[in-house]
Structures are given as C-alpha cells and as structure tokens.
Write a protein that binds this DNA or RNA. Structure first.
Lengths: 153, 153
DNA sequence: CGTGTAAGGAATTCTGACACG
DNA sequence: CGTGTAAGGAATTCTGACACG
C-alpha cells in the first residue's frame, strides 16, 4: 500500500523549488497580510521593503515571497504595539529565516514515500550515526514524527 | 556570538506560516512557470487546475501556491514528452507533497538560533532516542547537516 | 486536442495631491 | 510620522472568436 516516489519525480520537485521565482502583486500582499496598498507604497518609499520588479517604467509592483514574510512580520510587531520603525528593525534581525527553511528542504530531501494517510520523507544521514537515515513521517492532520531507519544497502 | 531567537518570534513565524493564505495572479503563474495565460485558462476549462478566487464576477483569477507547484509539475512532464492529459495524471499522484512539506515545518520547528553564517533549527525529539533533540544546522551556501543534542534540562 | 492571436471592455494598480495630526 | 481617500491615466486580465490542425 506504500509507494516509493521515483527519483525522477524528486528531481522535478527540487528543480521547481530551486528555480521557481514567483512574485505577487500589491493586492495579493495586501490581502494576505492585512497591510494596505497605501502602507506598502509608503514602506517602500522609506526603504523598508522593495519590490522585485521595479516600477520605473510605470508597471505594476511585484513582490517576492520573502517580502511577503517580512511584511507579515512587521505587521505582527505593529499589532503588538511597536512603531513602524521599531517593527522593521525587529523583523530585519531575522529576515533570512524563511530563506534558510527553504534551503533546509532543498538540501536534505532525498526521497518520498506515500502512505495511506500521509508521507514519509527521507532526510538522509545524521552526524555520528553511520548507517542510519533520518525519516520524517507525516500523517494528515496529525503530528510529524522523526525516526531512524537503516540505510538501504 | 550566537543568539537564541525568543519564543515570541517563533510564535509569529508559525502563525504566519499557518494563516498566510496568499494568492498569485495569472501573469505571475505564467512568468514563474513558462506556461502561457492561454494555456492556464484552457487547463482550467478542462478541470485540471482551478483558481482559488472564482472568476464568476468577472474578476481576475487568483491561484494558490499549490496550484503554482502543480502547474510547474505538469509543465515539467510536458517538456519531457508527455501529453497534457498524461502530465496532469502524473502530477496529480503527488499533488499533496508540497502541502506535507509545509506541515513538516509547522509541526516540528520549536526554536531557532542564529550563527555567524547560518541557522540552527531545533526539530525536537526522535522516536527511540529519549533525551535527545534533532538539530538541523544550515550554513549559508553550504549543505545542511543533522546532529543530535541533549535536551535542555 | 491544445495553443496563438487580435479586439474591446472590465478590474487592478499607478502617481501626485489633499487631509489629519 | 503614518495612513486614508478621490481622480484620472496606464498596465493587466477578462471573454468569445478565429485560426491551425
């Protein structure tokens, strides 16, 4: 009942994760974060955020996913009572977290199996435990567990 | 030189990951995947993909990130020589992979430390290894390694 | 089947300004 | 400082059709 997803598929997924540089419009950012378009343009003018596609030629602004994350963080701090400037400072301290998470997945994901109600991800070896692979098991709607399995010989 | 990011921050990041339902326009999907707008509308008409925001009221289409991933996968199979219909079938077999990856991060990420040139993620305990926490270490531009550390007492 | 194109209308975003404070 | 609003123009997307095959 389980099915090992072929390496070919994993290559495609990794390639997509690495190369897919998608962008969002200002309305998409506003809807997702609750920050108004007026605020986003003002924050840009102050240098707090910047669109990936310049608006030099009078075109619509485009934002990266990391800008979305940053806007969400800033908004989160503002709601807590920080001033805009203080919220930006706090958000900037950790702006690379989302990027690092993405890198984690790209670097280590080596294979996937489908289960009846979830997935098994093979994340490769752990330092100091030769011959073992780290396995993350996800069951839909439940928690994720990590286990160790002997590497296929 | 290292800095433990406070729980407060992790709560914000988790909250953002869970609640941030962002969407992309048809032009964003087309630019990110290389699939034309004409193709996207045709694929929608055939029932292969569907926008998150209906176009009933004559508004612009909005797509989820998972639809972007699916479109990328379909395109990847088409480029390999599959027909559109066959490519959709292959993509559908694994459409929940991206969702599961997101769940993995949300479920297990418990704390983050910043290093000089990367991050340390604490992913919590492993089955069968009491007292230990799984640590993922990411160095910018390098590989990710997993190690075990004693849980803080 | 699957995609390209030109056409006219509608939805979205653009800038600069006025407002409040 | 930081954000809301109304205004007119520009960029983007809309649908239905014609085309090729």
């Amino acid at each position: 009942m389980k099915k090992i997803i072929e390496d070919d598929f994993m290559q495609r997924v990794k390639s997509i994760l690495k190369t897919s540089h998608f962008s969002l419009g200002i309305g998409d950012i506003a809807d997702a974060t609750g920050v108004s378009q007026r605020q986003l343009r003002y924050w840009e003018k102050k240098g707090y955020i910047k669109p990936s596609t310049g608006t030099e030629e009078g075109k619509h602004r485009k934002y990266s996913y990391f800008t979305l994350a940053k806007v969400s963080l800033i908004q989160s701090f503002i709601e807590t009572g920080f001033t805009l400037n203080a919220a930006v400072t706090k958000a900037d301290e950790h702006r690379e977290v989302a990027n690092a998470l993405k890198q984690l997945v790209i670097n280590r994901l080596s294979s996937v199996e489908t289960l009846d109600n979830g997935f098994k991800f093979n994340l490769g070896p752990i330092e100091g435990l030769p011959g073992k692979d780290l396995i993350a098991t996800i069951h839909t709607g439940q928690d994720t567990t990590f286990t160790l399995e002997n590497q296929p010989s």
